[in-house]
Amino acid sequence: MMADESTGAGAEYAAEAAFPPFDPTYFASQLFWFAISFVLLYVLLSRFVLPRIGGAIEERRDRIADNLDAAAEMKAQADETEQAYQKALADARARAQSVAAEAKAEADREIAEATREADAELDAKLAEGEARIRDMREKALGEVRSIAAGAAATVAERLAGLEVSDSDAEKAVDGVKG
């Protein structure tokens, strides 16, 4: 190479100065030992050390990728489970609602029936009561007539000395009553 020669030329005048970095006395030695150590380092690194580091990194990367895959799978599973759960929940809710509606309808029906029964009973009782009242009134009215007739007969006897039979008196009372 050209640069080789130019340094060789540079080395010639550098020999006069004793500045160690330019001192050509040990150029050959330094090149020689540099070559040995550099090649040795290259071989050691490229054969043994770097594949080891690269392998470790690669292994970790693979492991991480695997773990990520596994995590993704697990997440999918979890999503699925959650969906199923949500669906079950929705079903249950719907069923609960329908049951509740049914129960409500049932209750309504029962209430309506009970109301109707109670109404009917009340009506019956009312009617009975009314009938009894009517009876009692009639009876009372009947008794009033006989009392009035008795009183009228008694009054007629006391005032006119007339002997009035019960039936006549009652007839008279009926006539007054109209």
Binding site: T25, Y26, A28, S29, Q30, F32, W33, S37
Partner: peptide, 10 residues
Amino acid sequence: GVNLSFTNSS
């Protein structure tokens, strides 16, 4: 004839 001595640099 070439000095290839082992030095402190080596």
